[in-house]
């Protein structure tokens, strides 16, 4: 790390920090224990090249891979009131928040962006599990509402990548109230007839699963992601028996009819492009490396592109 990483704002920071020599060139897969070369790992979107284990990926890394050329514009999220309950456990909530902001370089647990994915205009939001367990508080609620409003304004579909331990206890009832609040956002999209696609990543649990993360038009999960309302430990304590292997994992939910698909992270982008273009009544996507932007006008039937100019 050099001086610039400490003094430059996070967004600029992320451009530079890529060129940094990582302190450790090797990452150990937490599933199979294989040592993975960092570049190889990040090229594979943090999926273990040996066992296909999907490791944590930050919203920014995900967006870099998702949007064409890694280009996206962040959508501004209205800041909620800080520490509404003056919550204090062993630490003060503002202190917990500050340390999470420092370690992740993000404002809160959700990043919202707009851009093009396979030439398909979208709005996307991604939850950050490394930020206080991705927990849903007022900021996350505001982010989803802002994303939905932006999508409606631009007549674009919304893709949401979920990852959270649940509601943010430090915001008490106001975190719980994000369940109805985010559901209003989903209903607004529904009314505007815009696709809302949820990609559930490891782990998505609690109040998050019981609201916006389960209300998508299409529900996709990453392999082996834990998706549940009550966590396995709570259930084991309640029913006092061991739970079967793979319980509440993505494949298990798929088997039980709770998901449309379980899709490998590296195949996700193409799949999302394909699904969205069909739902939006657009022409088939162009596979592989995209040619230079097509400048022939009018003949294109791409709905959002034309609607943007009107």
């Amino acid at each position: 790390m050099n001086w610039i990483t400490n003094y430059v704002r996070p967004r600029i920071n992320s451009i530079f920090s890529k060129r940094d020599m990582p302190e450790n060139l090797w990452t150990k897969c937490d599933e199979c224990g294989t040592m993975l070369f960092h570049r190889e790992l990040s090229d594979n979107l943090n999926v273990c090249t040996n066992c296909d284990h999907h490791m944590v990926i930050t919203p920014r890394e995900r967006f870099n891979a998702l949007f064409d050329g890694g280009i996206f514009t962040e959508v501004e999220v209205p800041k909620p009131i800080a520490d509404p309950l003056q919550f204090r456990d062993q630490k003060r909530y503002p202190d917990r928040l500050k340390s999470a902001q420092k370690s992740t370089g993000e404002t809160d647990a959700m990043l919202v962006a707009e851009g093009e994915m396979g030439r398909t205009p979208i709005v996307a939001c991604a939850q950050d599990f490394s930020f206080m367990g991705g927990s849903m508080g007022m900021y996350v609620g505001n982010a989803i509402i802002a994303a939905a409003e932006r999508a409606i304004k631009l007549k674009r579909p919304l893709i949401l990548f979920s990852a959270a331990g649940g509601a943010r206890m430090q915001e008490g009832i106001l975190s719980l109230m994000q369940m109805p609040r985010t559901t209003v956002a989903v209903n607004l999209l529904k009314e505007a007839n815009l696709p809302y696609i949820v990609v559930l990543t490891h782990p998505t649990t609690g109040g998050v699963t019981a609201s916006y993360a389960m209300l998508g038009d299409v529900q996709i999960a990453e392999p082996n992601a834990l998706i549940c309302f009550a966590g396995p430990r709570v259930i084991e304590q309640t029913i006092r028996e061991k739970l079967p292997e793979g319980f509440q994992r993505a494949e298990y939910l798929l088997d039980h009819g709770m998901l449309d698909r379980v899709t490998h992270r590296t195949a996700l982008r193409d799949e999302l492009v394909s699904i969205l273009r069909m739902l939006m009544g657009m022409e088939p996507p162009i596979k592989g490396d995209l040619p230079a932007p097509d400048l022939t006008p009018a003949s294109s039937k791409d709905v959002p592109e034309t609607s943007e100019t009107t």
Binding site: A210, M214, A230, H256
Partner: peptide
């Protein structure tokens, strides 16, 4: 918080 409840989509049911 039970096994059957989770199997049958507790979170989806609450969300709906």
């Amino acid at each position: 918080p039970g096994k059957g409840a989770e199997e049958r989509g507790q979170s989806e049911a609450i969300a709906r």
